Amino acid sequence: MKQSRYKTYAREGCPVEATLELFSGKGKGMILYHLLEGTLRFNELKRRVGALTQRMLTKQLRELEGYGLVHREVYAEVPPKVEYSLTDTGRSLEPILLALKDWGEEHALPRLREKQAESAICETE
């Protein structure tokens, strides 16, 4: 599991930072969002998340599992079958994840698209 950014989380705004730290990282928000739909096998999750390598997805899933947000179920079969689902704690993030999605559609995506358009203009000149 990755090391915490801070030694303590004792100040007033620290719970916000601590929460963001749990699911900050490449693809973690998308992993959690897609697991809201229910249990998924590794390859299905990889298809839905898209941009992550198999190694990075495995790393992020292990961190989320270490934080108690994701449950990993391994079935004794050949080939091995592994399924991922949200724990009750992970499921409690649902309103937060949906609010982040809504906010992102309204505010973040337009700003990022605008930045990309500006960059494209500057690159072609």
Rank of each mutant, 00 (worst) to 15 (best):
L20S: 13
T89K: 15
G68Y: 11
M1Q: 01
R41E: 01
A99P: 00
H71L: 13
M30Y: 04
R55S: 15
K7G: 09
G68M: 00
T87K: 03
I121S: 13
L93D: 08
L97F: 06
N43C: 03
L57G: 04
G29A: 10
V16G: 02
T89V: 14
T39W: 00
L22S: 11
V16P: 01
T87W: 04
P95Q: 07
R111M: 08
L45G: 05
A120Y: 03
I31S: 04
R11C: 10
Q60F: 09
Q116Y: 02
K59L: 03
D102V: 09
R48S: 09
P110Q: 06
R47H: 07
L61Q: 15
A76M: 04
G27H: 02
C122R: 15
Y67R: 12
K115Q: 11
M56C: 09
L40A: 08
E118A: 15
A117F: 02
V74R: 10
T124Y: 12
V78D: 11
V82A: 05
T58Q: 15
L61D: 07
G90E: 04
P15G: 04
M1W: 07
L57C: 07
Y33L: 11
P110W: 12
Y9K: 01
P80A: 12
Y67M: 13
L52Y: 02
V16Q: 10
K2W: 03
E21R: 08
E65A: 11
L52R: 04
C14Y: 04
L109G: 00
V16R: 10
G29K: 15
H107K: 13
T124R: 15
E94N: 04
E12H: 02
M1A: 13
G90C: 13
L57R: 03
G68H: 06
K81G: 01
E73D: 05
R11V: 13
M1T: 00
L45Q: 08
L52D: 05
L109V: 03
S85F: 02
K2C: 01
G104C: 12
H71E: 14
E63F: 06
I31K: 07
T8P: 01
G27T: 04
A120T: 07
E106N: 07
E65C: 08
D88W: 08
E105D: 14
M30T: 00
E94H: 05
R48N: 12
E12G: 01
L69I: 05
A120P: 03
T53S: 15
K7R: 14
R11P: 00
G90W: 02
V74Q: 04
Y84A: 10
